[in-house]
């Protein structure tokens, strides 16, 4: 992998900052501000620029983990950050209204990255809803992006095992896509 930048995206309150804190081996650089939009997500703070964490792969090699703000008014950060990324972990919360459409909507925003890199969908807070959101996301992706391989997991962003599995699956997804693309051009 030439560049190891992984992006965490998804709506406000899905657990992006928590996921990066769970995975990172360094103290995460956060840009949190007091959240004045309690109607959208009832939490104290929200990310307004980015979160940044790292995982070491060796003396000179790192996976860089970037989280972008969830609110659409910060979509310029989505554009800036996806240019550098090789893969996307899209986190959505299971109790969001119409979670399938939410995933499709976000993947459209990150379409450039989704087409050239890897994508994994992580569904958080599924303990509140049962398996139905996974089925909804699966159906929405099959309908809107047929033939595109996008693994879907239920995750707890606080759980290191969950997040490592999600990250490893993303890396496998990137490598599979790269191999398929190379095979198609031979």
């Amino acid at each position: 992998m030439a560049e190891h930048v992984i992006l965490f995206a998804g709506p406000m309150g899905a657990g992006k900052t928590t996921a990066i804190r769970t995975l990172s081996e360094i103290e995460v650089v956060s840009t949190e501000a007091a959240n004045t939009d309690r109607e959208t997500a009832d939490k104290e703070t929200t990310t307004v620029a980015l979160d940044y964490g790292e995982i070491g792969l060796g003396p000179d090699d790192k996976v860089r983990l970037y989280g972008v703000p969830g609110q659409r008014r910060f979509d310029f950060m989505w554009t800036i950050m996806q240019e550098r990324a090789m893969g996307l972990i899209l986190l959505v919360h299971a109790d969001a209204p119409d979670v399938g459409s939410l995933v499709v909507e976000h993947l459209r925003e990150f379409e450039h990255l989704a087409r050239r890199g890897g994508v994994v969908v992580g569904i958080s807070r599924s303990d509140l809803t049962g398996p139905q959101p996974v089925n909804e996301v699966h159906a929405a992706l099959a309908g809107q992006l047929p033939g595109v391989l996008i693994p879907i997991f239920t995750v707890d962003p606080r759980d290191a095992g969950h997040m490592r599995m999600t990250l490893m699956t993303l890396i496998a997804n990137i490598e599979t896509r790269t191999a398929l693309t190379a095979g198609a051009t031979e």
């Binding site: 501000a33 929200t46 620029a49 910060f74 310029f76």
Partner: peptide, 30 residues
């Protein structure tokens, strides 16, 4: 606001474009 909502603008205008507020919020936080 720290989280990027426009409180007031000069000169006043009705446009809903809050791009400057959002970008300023990100830059201030960074």
């Amino acid at each position: 606001t720290d989280d990027g909502f426009e409180v007031a603008r000069h000169p006043r205008r009705d446009s809903a474009d809050q791009r400057l507020a959002s970008m300023a919020s990100s830059l201030q936080a960074l």
